[in-house]
Design a protein around this nucleic acid. Structure first.
Lengths: 112, 112
DNA sequence: TCGATATTTCAATAATTGTTGTATAGTTGA
DNA sequence: TCAACTATACAACAATTATTGAAATATCGA
């Protein structure tokens, strides 16, 4: 994870629409959703959704596969994990004592 | 951490300059740096830096305290931790099995 | 093949964000 | 008080990003 990838991922998440899309696809992992379903669920004009899907796919946040005339989108959870790791490293780097006194860090999924 | 806060934090991190500022301030935690030091270290015109510092402070990513004629900026590590938790929840929600097969999750600071 | 469907591309425009220089406000030390 | 210094506010402009409708591409079912 280099700085350039990190910034483009943050850019991908820095819009309400794109964050909604990503969360929706996480909720529907691993099956994913086709573009029309996303548009219907989020009540977005297809053109606009396509614009954001393209951006997110280009950034690597989503994967897309063709299914006949449908395009199925899936959240790229590995990239998200890498981003969390990057952020964690940024947050901690050399300063564990200041970052995590108050609140013991839990592992990622231990609340599920 | 609601969606609106999350998006404004991502927006704050979605620029090379702002990401550099944040990483610099994490490196200099907990002392922080005054605006002029940041400008010098990152070779930025003061006006432009001020623009970005204001945005980051407004988003809650930085804290600022006045020291005479200097403004001292510090990384808000608690907010960063909250953002990591949010992202982790988004990433995992109901899908731990798909998100973290390959790579066992480590606690945030165990590599330091 | 043909009409209906799904999605994207393109072009036009609107809206937002980033950068720079100049001016201003506040602080310091003499 | 005054000159030097730190930083921000403001205004102008540049650049990027978001949104929309119309047209194009490709697939499907009959």
């Amino acid at each position: 994870m280099d700085k350039q990838l990190a910034t483009s991922l943050f850019e991908s998440l820095a819009s309400g629409i794109r964050l909604d899309v990503f969360r929706l696809l996480v909720k529907h992992a691993p099956a994913g959703l086709v573009a029309g379903e996303i548009a219907a669920l989020l009540a977005l004009p297809p053109t606009n959704l396509s614009f954001h899907l393209k951006a997110m796919t280009h950034a690597g946040l989503l994967n897309v596969t063709q299914e006949g005339r449908y395009q199925r989108y899936r959240a790229n959870l590995k990239v998200m994990q890498a981003l969390i790791d990057y952020l964690t490293a940024e947050c901690c780097s050399g300063h564990t004592e200041h970052c995590f006194d108050a609140k013991p860090v839990k592992t990622c999924c231990d609340t599920n």
